[in-house]
Design a protein around this nucleic acid. Structure first.
Lengths: 333, 333
DNA sequence: CTGTTAGCGCGTTCAA
DNA sequence: TTGAACGCGCTAACAG
């Protein structure tokens, strides 16, 4: 591998000059620059990123920590982050937190040790204090899917409460009054917020929240299925005509249980989901759901960094609004 | 940040000794070692990975290049790769090739420039020659989802042809004789192989391959839908009782078209998919499909590296066998 | 506009 | 078993 030294020799200039033309630096005459460029070309020179990082204390890498990599959720997000950053020649190092505080912290340490210039975090288990503290450190962080007031300008998030409201409101407007709910894990912020929105829509319509009709799932298809099984048992005592689930995967599991027991959807039961994952439109019936622009949020996190860390001139907005996508799984009573 | 120098001062030893206890710990007296360890602890010392990489020419990072990050396919693979590598304190840098030769090459360059110790590649557009050549370079590569004879020991792949055979064979054993096929892109190796397997099952049963009943899709739900629309038009001239799709997403799109036109699945038409994506069991009807152990292949690629690059003692196997998963979308004629 | 000179933090001889 | 010294390839003052 040719080094900067080889280039300087061939071009008949000093190391510093070569370094200058590499870093877009001003103050190099066109002739000299061209000589250097030619020499680089001739030698097939590629800068050594480790040496650059060591000397400049800047790695051009950003760490991305997500809860999980599989599932329909994080792929699109990662895709946007990667492509946005890649355009500016930054690279992304990934780590997975598995929604566990210890693993999340461990991953943060890991990424920090790796010399990332910044961190994009989608973390659920770690405390607000930890993150506030982390944000005071030398390495900038951006949070996706989480709102913390003290560092709100670093948060890219969805108005989950509004989405929860929309889902239930939609059913109410269709005449439903008895609405069951399968929630996400009570530990997760977004799950809580979505449920709060659900309750707000209920109380606004003067219908009482029935805790017997609320099941806590874990966002998986499976828990949607078990939740539905539970709800079906309740149904004789506590009838309901619709169910909203805190994400699409749980709707999917729930519907499959209904179908198996011979029910017809949406005639016998209306469903509303959340997230609008790609499959939502291919499930039968096509899901009415709340759109979660997760890929846009990923992109925005990347842009935030480009703007605030690498000084690109970009507009960023932190808050995203959910939107109701009405398809076929919900009909008037 | 404390440096190795600070540690050496506090411990009252030289730089070299500190370096020794960090690496392999050879030839350091227990007392000295402990003093150094204590000093590290006290200072909260963390090695600078750039300096390590620069001096040792080893980055402890591996580059992973995939065709895409979204979709149901690559998430599980990435998850396994990340966790396997992370266990050994290696980190993964991701890049996306978008099934385009130029972008794939560009990404390889990018990862190489980044000083990756090795590359895991899931590439489709780039030529065999390119990869063979790349494998002769200083940076080891492993291929996922691709078989190239000259570098077969570096290939982790699925017997796609066998899977294609299984899917169609299953239908034939259920009495189907007229079977339509929605293939993947004719450019992609796996798509070709799956189709070859289909044809083999057909000819083995003495049924002729009807090109009018074969539609080339692109692996997306959408193309499954358009493929199905096309096939339905053919049906009056060329009747068929079953269709096999080269992946589950296309089945999903195809089934939704049938459902919309009032057909009942599987009574009016049997379907078999490929890949066994997580959603396959939640779609209605539950998909009969060919299992593609993509996550295991990802893990195996990581293990391969651990074995061959970082000298871990691990057994690896390169070939994976598909398995038929019979569910509800296919029934006897 | 260009060259000289220190480091950046660590691995690795070679002596002792 | 330990230490001194050099070098990895590059950036960033500081001179000129």
């Amino acid at each position: 591998m040719a080094t900067i030294y080889d280039v300087s020799q061939l071009a008949g200039v000093s190391l510093a000059t070569v370094s200058r033309v590499m870093n877009k630096n001003t103050n190099v005459s066109d002739k000299t620059r061209q000589r250097v460029l030619d020499a680089m070309e001739k030698l097939g020179y590629r800068p050594n990123t480790f040496a650059q990082s060591l000397a400049s204390n800047c790695s051009n890498s950003v760490g991305v920590l997500v809860s999980q990599l599989d599932g329909p959720y994080y792929g699109p997000m990662m895709a946007e982050i990667e492509s946005s950053l890649r355009l500016e020649n930054k690279h992304v190092i990934i780590a997975v937190g598995h929604s566990d505080a210890a693993q999340e912290k461990d991953s943060v340490e890991f990424l920090l040790d790796r010399g990332c210039d910044a961190l994009i975090l989608d973390v659920e288990a770690v405390s607000d204090e930890y993150l506030i503290n982390l944000s005071k450190g030398p390495t900038p962080i951006v949070l996706i899917n989480r709102y913390i007031e003290q560092i709100s300008e670093r948060c890219i998030y969805l108005e989950n409460e509004v989405g929860g409201y929309m889902a239930t409101k939609h059913l109410i407007m269709q005449g439903h009054r008895h609405i069951a709910y399968i929630s996400g894990p009570a530990k997760k912020h977004d799950a809580i917020e979505r449920l709060v929105g659900h309750k707000r829509a209920l109380s606004e319509a003067n219908v009482e929240f029935t805790s017997a009709l609320c099941f806590e799932g874990d966002y998986s298809e499976e828990s949607g299925a078990t939740g539905m099984t539970y709800l079906l048992q309740q149904r004789s005592k506590k009838p309901f005509t619709a169910v909203v689930c805190a994400n699409d995967q749980m709707v999917s599991g729930a519907i499959s249980v209904c179908l198996e027991s011979g029910m017809r959807i949406p005639h016998d039961l209306s469903f509303v989901g959340y997230d609008n994952i790609p499959f939502a439109r291919y499930i039968s019936p096509k899901l009415t759901t709340v759109n979660n622009p997760i890929h846009e949020m990923g992109k925005m996190a990347a842009l935030w960094l480009l703007k605030n860390l690498y000084n690109k001139n970009i507009d960023v907005n932190n808050v995203f609004m959910p939107e109701l996508v009405i398809r076929e799984s919900s009909i008037p009573v």
